[in-house]
Design a protein around this nucleic acid. Sequence first.
DNA 1: TTGAAGTATGCAACAGAAGTGCATTATTTT
DNA 2: AAAATAATGCACTTCTGTTGCATACTTCAA
Lengths: 138, 138
Amino acid sequence: MQDFEKILENNNVKPTAMRLLVLQFLLNKKVATSLTDVENYFDKSDRTTLYRTLKTFVEKGISHKIDDGTGITKYALCEENCHCEIDNDLHLHFHCTNCNETICITDYKIPRITLPTGYIAENINLVVKGICDKCNKK
Amino acid sequence: MQDFEKILENNNVKPTAMRLLVLQFLLNKKVATSLTDVENYFDKSDRTTLYRTLKTFVEKGISHKIDDGTGITKYALCEENCHCEIDNDLHLHFHCTNCNETICITDYKIPRITLPTGYIAENINLVVKGICDKCNKK
DNA sequence: TTGAAGTATGCAACAGAAGTGCATTATTTT
DNA sequence: AAAATAATGCACTTCTGTTGCATACTTCAA
């Protein structure tokens, strides 16, 4: 409990009840989570509050935003070894078309990309779609 | 004109007036195009018709669908040297955050990705965001 | 400790994109 | 020409993301 509060406070986010719950939820869920996912879990709370909570988390560097190509924004608290949070950093996400989950694959490193002259890369997003580990076993 | 009809017929799509116009539009526009783009261009026609026209093009292999991470589905008829259309093929798209255009970069080849055991890749989507050629010159 | 200022929350509402159902129109086939 | 099939256009729904505004809750200074 104390830990969660520390995470928020360290990032200049006031630890309200809702924020603690959302943080806890994201920490438990290891996969990228959509606003709707969070909404369904906390069916008592308001969409907007959750939306703004997630937005705050992203702004304050607690969570990051993922475009997994499904058209639905995902959020994820990355683990220590995940380099998803900074600018030109590597982003490899796996989206399972069966269970619809988006997983952060931290092992794979994206090689440097040489763009045609004149192009400036600010951000790289690599999404692999297919069948994940769990679904494959079934 | 005949050429356009051939393209459609070769892919088992009946060449209606609307479809020919949309095809022509996509051919002229070298960048990835959203439904709204098409809609704005043909302001007389109905959204649904255009939506279904694009859907048909994708289904019949004339065009392909692009997830460029903006949350808006884009469509593009790729040129001969673009390998965007089949299964495990390379997809490199550049999305310019300035002019908001999504460009198919055919020169860059995506290296084979080794996923953790159990994962099956069906599709790879690599989107680089930044400033494009044209915007850079300005 | 009260009151003001600041922040968070919840409700309502809106915008844009995607998608469906159905009736109408056009095209093809027999 | 009639029947069957396909395309189109309209209306409407759903879902995600987002903003505005009023209310509630904190914090902090007088």
